[in-house]
Simulated assay, not measured.
Amino acid sequence: MPHPPLPPDELERAVHAALTGVIDPEIRKPITELDMVAGVTAGTDGRVQVGVRLTIVGCPASDRIERDVIAAAESVAGEGNATVELTVMTPEQRAALTERLRGGRAARGNPFGPGTLTRVIAITSGKGGVGKSTLTANLAVALAARGLSVGLVDADVHGFSIPGLLGLIDGHGNAARPTRVDEMILPPVAHGVKVISIGMFVEPSEPGGRSSSVAVAWRGPMLHRTLQQFLTDVYFGDLDVLLVDLPPGTGDVAISLGQLLPNAEVVVVTTPQPAAADVAERSGVVARQTGQHVIGVVENMAAFTGADGALVDLFGSGGGEEVARRLSEGQDVPVPLLATVPLSVALRRGGDDGDPVVVAEPDDPAARAIEAVAARLAVRSRSLRGRPLDVSVR
Rank of each mutant, 00 (worst) to 15 (best):
P272C: 10
I295N: 00
P248N: 03
G296S: 04
V268G: 01
P248A: 07
D245N: 07
A277T: 07
V285W: 11
A254C: 09
R282S: 01
P221K: 06
N263G: 12
R210E: 13
G291A: 07
V297T: 05
V297H: 02
L223R: 09
E265A: 10
V244E: 02
P274W: 09
R225P: 02
G237C: 13
G220T: 09
S212T: 15
A276N: 04
N263C: 05
A275T: 15
S256Q: 13
G251V: 13
V294W: 10
A254K: 02
L239R: 07
L257D: 02
L260P: 02
L239C: 10
A276W: 06
M222W: 04
A215D: 12
D233A: 15
G249A: 04
D240M: 03
S213G: 13
M222Y: 08
Q292T: 09
P262Y: 02
V241P: 00
D278C: 06
T270S: 14
D233Y: 10
N263M: 08
R282E: 07
L239W: 04
L231P: 01
S212Q: 14
E281N: 15
Q273D: 08
R282K: 11
F236E: 03
R210I: 04
V268I: 14
Q292R: 13
V241T: 04
I295E: 01
L260R: 02
D240I: 09
L242M: 11
P221Q: 14
Q289I: 05
V234F: 12
L243I: 06
D238G: 11
D252R: 05
A254M: 13
W218L: 13
L223A: 13
H293M: 05
P262F: 03
P247C: 06
A276D: 04
S213M: 15
Q229T: 08
D245L: 08
L239G: 05
G220H: 07
L261Y: 02
V294K: 01
H224K: 06
F236L: 06
A276V: 07
V279A: 06
A287V: 09
V234M: 11
L227M: 11
L261T: 12
H293Y: 09
P262I: 10
L257G: 04
D245M: 04
D278S: 11
T250C: 07
P272D: 11
V286G: 00
P221G: 13
V241C: 00
S256Y: 08
G296D: 08
L231T: 06
R219H: 06
H293N: 12
G258C: 14
V253R: 00
S212E: 10
L246M: 15
S211L: 11
V216G: 03
T270R: 00
V214G: 05
F230E: 02
A275N: 12
R225I: 04
S256F: 09
L242W: 05
E265Q: 14
I295D: 00
A215Q: 12
